[in-house]
Design a protein around this nucleic acid. Sequence first.
DNA 1: CTGAAAGCGCTTACAG
DNA 2: CTGAAAGCGCTTACAG
Lengths: 360, 360
Amino acid sequence: MSNDAKTRAHEAAAPATGSGTHGKSTINDVARLAGVSKKTVSRVINDSPLVRPDTRQKILSLMQEMGYAPDPQARGLAFRRSFLIGLVFDNPTAQYIVNLQYGALDALRDSGFELVVHPCDSKSEGYIEGIKRFAQQQKLYGVILIPRVSEDQALADALKEIGCRYVRIASVPMDEPANMVLTHDRQAGAEAANYLESLGHRRVALITGPKRYRSSIERGGGFTEALAKRGIELPPERVYEGGYTFESGVAGAEALLTRHPRPTAIFACNDEMAAGVYKAALRMGLSIPGDLSVVGYDDSPLASQLWPALTTLRLPVRDLGRQAAAMLLAENWPRAAQAQAGISVSPHLVVRDSCQPPQA
Amino acid sequence: MSNDAKTRAHEAAAPATGSGTHGKSTINDVARLAGVSKKTVSRVINDSPLVRPDTRQKILSLMQEMGYAPDPQARGLAFRRSFLIGLVFDNPTAQYIVNLQYGALDALRDSGFELVVHPCDSKSEGYIEGIKRFAQQQKLYGVILIPRVSEDQALADALKEIGCRYVRIASVPMDEPANMVLTHDRQAGAEAANYLESLGHRRVALITGPKRYRSSIERGGGFTEALAKRGIELPPERVYEGGYTFESGVAGAEALLTRHPRPTAIFACNDEMAAGVYKAALRMGLSIPGDLSVVGYDDSPLASQLWPALTTLRLPVRDLGRQAAAMLLAENWPRAAQAQAGISVSPHLVVRDSCQPPQA
DNA sequence: CTGAAAGCGCTTACAG
DNA sequence: CTGAAAGCGCTTACAG
């Protein structure tokens, strides 16, 4: 992944030992010591081609030597744009947020950009105004939108209106390619279905997330679709709408497992709900995978900590974050971003110990 | 908690509808429309007392009306200091990081300050240099240090040297009160011991975190101490040094539970390790709390999702974050911060279903 | 209580 | 390829 950093100077090492004056040198100091105008130094900072190679080299090593790094605030003021990337999210799991941050920071490392976190409540009145103000006031360079806010077209429109770059992480294309990182939830849901079918399961059940989450619709839809393609029906009484929470997983499993005949496998649309299924099964005296096979989604730390370890769909969240941030930094947005958008980030099945063929 | 915001203007609402000119008004526009100099507007922005009340009021409502908010970059450039707070952490759990962020953001809301995240690797060579550069380059207003980096005196010294405000979250005082938010781990460890003793347990075991974590030493130490005070000995063979990870909890429990006689209770120094104890017990056919009582630490979401629900010490992480950020913003640092430092954030026992008196 | 001047550290036109 | 002037939107001395 090419690092389209705006400037090389940001990679400046610590002030060279012994350089003296408190490491607070400015562009003027560099210019004076190099015997050029500050405009020339500025050109070097901004990787302009309009500098003679030897001049550039001389200035570059001088900056290195002095431990000079341009002041982001001064640059921002002149550019009318900051070097901050906003991370906007509603209420995903802690693990999701943190992994996304790590990924985004991977891409921002040594670029001179920093990551500013901005949680919000998409159900509150005027939350879009809040984000707009955040973007405008800080003159954000760009914004990364995480589900569920990424799915809000009104938010995207607001951002576009004020001219703020953004990238939406979502399960289906709902914007220009340059503004999207896709998570392919439908395909992953199908993988879960195919896996269970291949083990021999015919009476399977589904615990979805809330309908207002596009991911939930895609995961559940892909699952149902793939099942149908293999000739397996999923009647409404074997589908439970959960809330992506542990408790809803418990409730869903309790509802589904009291049906007769009992399903032999459950696909929960996230790991938290799958953990809820474990609890319900344990309480009902059902063994996993003996009496019940379970598949989750996310591959959160939880998945490997459950016993038996949970078979689940791994969502490479850190990669999503890295990808989104890299697209935002792309030199010639949106052209370059679009090219990068081709790099796909897909979930895949991680087989552990929570599934086996159904008992005869 | 008083919000010592530097300025009122940050709370400016969205541009009043119909105000026209794209909401990009500057201090000059305000000054012109108010018929005063920009210096006077500046005084209002910065809550200077040197403005006639009616003048101030007039300017304030004008700003509100225009949807004016001062540009943080321009202010920062003039102030030689940004309005950014850095959150520096090594590798705590995702839940800890996120809760701390939420807490810090609670305190920063409507203050004009933003939160910049900065993970690091305290085991890597020159990591302190990296943080120093981050603080210096961004001219951070202040930094919040989370364990384990908060325990590194060299880091604190480096920050002090460059004149960067910081607050350390840690289990014991190791700096000026104005620089500390205490988590009182020792006292909480004692609470765990007293609780188990009161239930009648005499053969108890302990799974600590890594020795290099001060929290681990305090939690374990408080536990051991309180036990001793009540006449219960904790021999070395009933103490296992874990790594604050799930896997180490499994390993620890496996080691401790094969001793004869078997301990009737285990205190794990965090919930992840407690979850590991659950797994080991389940595999060994031991029931919780029938055969074994378990106490964790953190009250992470995990705690209530385990079955039976885990009795644990609740660490109010969000409060820690709020407290730390509020101290950083205190008007007259370090005096005011010190006053706030009095507000204590203490863990307390949350009793759920994982403990009972030992079987006869 | 109020203001005119100079400056924070950079960049954008505009010339050459 | 290089530079002198003006400006980004604020604040700090310094006067009054």
